[in-house]
Design a protein around this nucleic acid. Structure first.
Lengths: 330, 330
DNA sequence: TTGTATGCGTTATCAT
DNA sequence: ATGATAACGCATACAA
């Protein structure tokens, strides 16, 4: 039964004190080349590596970043998580993935992250009201928080988001140019929807073009199924003067809606109803869907969050431009 | 600036020793109700909760489970991660999500997980050769490992998988019943493919029905794009005696292939070529695809892994039955 | 039941 | 440059 070797054991083997061993493993510590060599040799023989747990306790820095996620229905979460974990690991951090759900809510998660002494908390696509926070005296002892891919609804907590105003302006301009005049908008979970501000700007820019009525569809949550359900009732009850274009708050809703429109109602996209999504999820680009959408600058967004975590960037909300992706659905 | 309160501070406030404070927070410790009440009161006032970092150092148990993932292209990873994190948190554990890639390989990850003293490592959809392990003297000091959703290729490391033999038997029976006689199989990344054994059983059961030639297509990896590429060359170079059914190693490959077959080559599914996938990814069920597939018992699989981690289940490979999902693509 | 001493494996600080 | 002392916050074992 090999156990992890400790600095003390290495010290004995190398004939030095354990502090010299520590120094051999500390960047820029003052130590002779000779000592360092002896230590590293002994360490290799004993398969020694520093215990990060003990190091964290002493330094009060764990290198662990809690990532809160409360919605796994959107497949776009996956590339985001990939980029996030990759970039975190590239700077010596590691992600603690925390699933926020009915059994484990934000308060639990916050307490847990705090108890584990994480260096920071990333609210990925999640946010919550200020009230739950003031209880916890946030901003004092708790780790710094950052919101990713949603507007922050918490005073003093910065967010990194894709520029919704710019995005919706480009989208509405495009739709208007294409000749669409009866727009509809489908939003997802109400609590999250407002933080995206997509509907808000969608209305605003249509209104600037003289169109003030936007049909609104509320999906229960962000999922394929919810997207289909969100439009079903409308399609079966309305046949004339229908919307001619539907913007959905994200791609997965849009794909669900498109599937319903074409598959279940036999309508044509974009001839009967055009569709726009948001995220540029890979499958939306398939020839089966050809979904026009808006791509978030995922790598850049994650990059900014990481620099904030490393204190290389002021903790202020950052808004990055995305990219309109035109396909056959419009 | 509020800092985290320590047991000692609570002890002072409550007028007891710090060990009594510890006992108040230790399940089943011997302590008077009166003392406990005083302690909890003081703790609440000071907003004290035990520091899990220090606890972990002392108990040598962190409650952290490293989850290795090396492929984020398959959207089915997301519901798996959701279930995994949810069930881990339900038993007081938490997931450390580790992205295995070119910059951070298995050996790095293993070392890292070990340094952080995780309680266990889950190789989720990942495995690697024995040789890299023997270096690290695995099975002695390192945390126990488990493979999820792949066969284990490591001696002594158990896996929890969906029963490939049963699955492929059902699939091949179904295809044969439907009258298909010229089967093809598309595999993904070679290193992972063999661990799934899907191709192996696909061949075996067709062979039992007297069909020994299986056209084989090798996709570079498991992604939509790779699925499309995997079949492109074949379709453009072969026009007669083509395969009449294509089984893909997972849904995302199948969707890519189907998109190529219908969208780019104008062929009909299932009339020209039928398609079968594996995983039952939600979008495969859309009317745009209607993909016949095989569903893995994700909750049960995760449940077994967790019981192994809790030592409530012998660390032996477990094979669970899935479910054939018939749709219009066959 | 409660208090004391000691250990977990590091790091920080000081002395040599 | 190296060794020694203290500290990080908690748990374990033992004594009272």
């Amino acid at each position: 039964m090999r156990k992890r070797a400790t600095a003390k054991q290495v010290a004995n083997a190398a004939g030095v004190s354990k502090w010299t061993v520590i120094r051999a493993f500390t960047e820029g510590a003052s130590i002779t080349d000779e000592s360092k060599r002896k230590v590293l040799e002994a360490a290799a023989a004993l398969n020694y590596t520093p215990n990060l747990l003990a190091r964290s306790l002493a330094t009060k820095s764990t290198g662990q970043i809690a990532v809160f996620v409360d919605d796994f229905a959107n497949p776009q979460k996956l590339p985001f998580l990939e980029t996030l974990t990759e970039q975190l690991q590239a700077v010596g951090r590691v992600a603690m993935l925390i699933n926020i759900n009915h059994h484990f809510d934000h308060v639990h998660a916050l307490l847990h992250a705090d108890q584990r002494q994480v260096d920071a908390i990333i609210l990925f696509g999640t946010a919550f009201r200020d009230e739950t926070l003031t209880d916890r005296q946030l901003g004092n002892g708790t780790p710094p928080m950052f919101v990713l891919a949603r507007d922050s609804q918490i005073e003093g907590v910065p967010a990194v988001v894709c520029d919704a105003e710019l995005a919706l302006r480009e989208i509405v301009d495009h739709l208007h140019d294409k000749g669409y005049r009866r727009p509809g908008f489908m939003s997802g979970a109400p609590a999250l929807s407002t933080a995206l501000r997509r509907r808000e700007y969608f209305s605003k820019f249509w209104s600037e073009k003289g169109i003030s009525h936007i049909a609104h569809f509320a999906a229960e949550k962000y999922s394929f199924e919810a997207g289909a359900l969100g439009i079903r009732n409308y399609l079966s009850s309305t046949s004339k003067d229908r919307i001619d274009v539907l913007m959905c708050e994200n791609d997965i809703l849009a794909l669900g809606a498109m599937d319903e429109i074409r598959g279940k109602f036999g309508l044509s996209v974009p001839d009967d109803i055009a569709i726009v999504g948001f995220d540029n999820y890979e499958l939306g680009g398939s020839s089966a869907y050809g979904l026009t959408t808006y791509e978030q600058p995922l790598r850049e967004m994650v990059g900014v969050i990481i620099r904030m975590i490393k204190n290389e960037h002021d903790p202020e909300t950052v808004t990055l431009p995305g990219r309109l992706v035109l396909r056959s659905s419009t």
